[in-house]
Design a binder for these strands. Structure first.
Lengths: 284, 284
DNA sequence: TATTAAATGTAATGAAAATTTCAATGTCAA
DNA sequence: TTGACATTGAAATTTTCATTACATTTAATA
């Protein structure tokens, strides 16, 4: 239950000092409760012990837990209302429509976690063809990593997608040179094998690890040179990786544009090598 | 000035540890910065001193002042009647921002190509566990198909992802019963092998083909029972599959919600079977 | 490869914050 | 008026937190 609601409910049983606290808190909710216990005490002309008693009456084990609750409430209000907000939104209330709305929200919010600057740095690394690039993702996120792999392979050389089975990794790891790149995609339900891999790659082989993860940060972060933390919550029980895909596509596009002739030449040559049951039709 | 803006501005002069901190903070802004200095340090795999140095670089006399600034920002935003999120959403016109803008547009436009009605029909088919489901995508679009495969496999039985090599297909095709489902994802640079497969599956084996393609329609359409034509042009030289991913995720979510107990039970059992080097940490 | 400078974490320190104890104060009923 | 009880804050205590100093590691350059 909401702290505010709880206070209103319990208001009967409060002592005078507690009522002071309650009204101070409610009048500047929840920020009054985010100060230190003593400045809150001072402001309300009560004392720290009174506050301790007050919050424990509210069922918190201490002032800190109380503050955590307030913060969590704020956080929730800020993160969830994607859907609640847009009852004022345009038309269409079908499932698909609503879902798409949220997905597109996740996409735009990517920029909250990745600055243009960081984007540039990553771009720089991925474009440097003196470095090998190794990629891998988690069970559910590997498709994202694969998208990057496949496109990157069209653009540059020395791109290797790691197989899912750790047994086979050594074979790849031996090929890793210092300063090579590891791109790891790992979203919640983090997988230990990935952080193990990151550790090996970074510590033993001197590779740079670029991590794409969510705001709870995969343990891979420990070994990562760049952490791109992007939103994956779409408000449903299931996460959305649309943001991740958008980021990856942005990287691909940027790397390709970085050196345009080289890319077209490469893709051209590559097209020529396709067996002719390959493309059927390319133009509208 | 806003802490967020300041961080983006000063990004150049940051050390690696500071960058980690910056991206962790930005991805869960401003709440990541409201924890105690040590839990923030732990979460980002840096150390408390690094944070102290980081915030002092930001012009704060200490961690506490830094927190005060964050809280004051929250407060201000809260009290101004405008959108709660406005402030958190960085504006700007860097490459990434512009790209994301377009991607999110592609996502919302999916509903132009797929009606709620069609969505329902497809949903129905995918939920029907008396039908086998086979999936495959093109060279670049297979990751989309894989996303669907992998999630679907958590939800229901009899899901088979087709290998890319046509040589192996007969083995699968023999297993196809009449009224089974084929999900094929094929975007421009259509591949002949896919339409061959569609033909075999539909005409010879009596399967229903569900096609996810773009507005120029893959030749697979000829054999498809449902054609979902979605936007893939993001305005760059490269296509964006974000719309496709969003659609696929919507399907997954809807199928899962269709029969919720069955799904949780299935996922639960499935979790229990994971070797314990599986998940590492799941909570924030 | 050796040398230097920068970056980073460990551990020690000092500061402050929160909690507990306890005595003082006020309130109410007998 | 007095005694029992509840409320309260001062002071002491304990805990937690942030910072500083320093040693180690890492990266950069010659």
């Amino acid at each position: 239950m909401n702290v505010r609601e709880q206070i209103e409910e319990m208001a009967e049983g409060f002592t005078p000092a507690e009522r002071k606290l309650a009204s101070a808190l409610l009048s500047d909710y929840p920020f009054a409760g985010l100060e230190t216990i003593q400045s809150f005490a001072e402001k309300t002309h009560t004392s720290a012990p009174s506050i301790t008693r007050f919050v424990s009456k509210l069922g918190c084990s201490g002032y800190q837990e109380f503050q955590r609750r307030l913060i969590d409430e704020l956080k929730e209000r800020k993160h969830s209302p994607v859907d609640l907000r847009d009852d004022a939104m345009p038309v269409g209330d079908g499932f698909l429509r609503r879902f798409l709305e949220r997905s597109s929200d996740v996409v735009t919010r990517v920029s909250e976690g990745v600055t243009e600057d960081q984007f540039e740095r990553v771009l720089e690394l991925l474009s440097d063809d003196k470095r090998n690039v190794f990629l891998i993702g988690g069970r559910m996120s590997d498709p994202i990593a694969q998208t990057l792999s496949r496109h990157l392979r069209q653009i540059r050389r020395d791109v290797y997608h790691m197989p899912p089975d750790p047994e086979i990794w050594p074979e790849y790891l031996l090929r890793v040179r210092s300063r090579d790149i590891f791109v790891i995609v790992d979203f919640r339900r983090y997988e230990k094998r990935l952080s193990d891999l990151a550790e090996l790659a970074a510590e033993k082989r001197g590779a740079r690890v670029l991590l794409i993860t969510d705001k709870w940060l995969s343990p891979v972060a420990e070994h990562a040179a760049e952490v791109m933390a992007i939103p994956i919550e779409s408000g449903t029980a299931w996460d959305s990786y649309c943001g991740a895909l958008a980021l990856v596509e942005a990287l691909i596009t940027a790397v390709a544009e970085q050196d345009w002739e080289a890319t077209t030449k490469r893709i051209g040559g590559w097209e020529a090598l396709r067996p002719n049951y390959g493309a059927v039709d390319d133009e509208s």
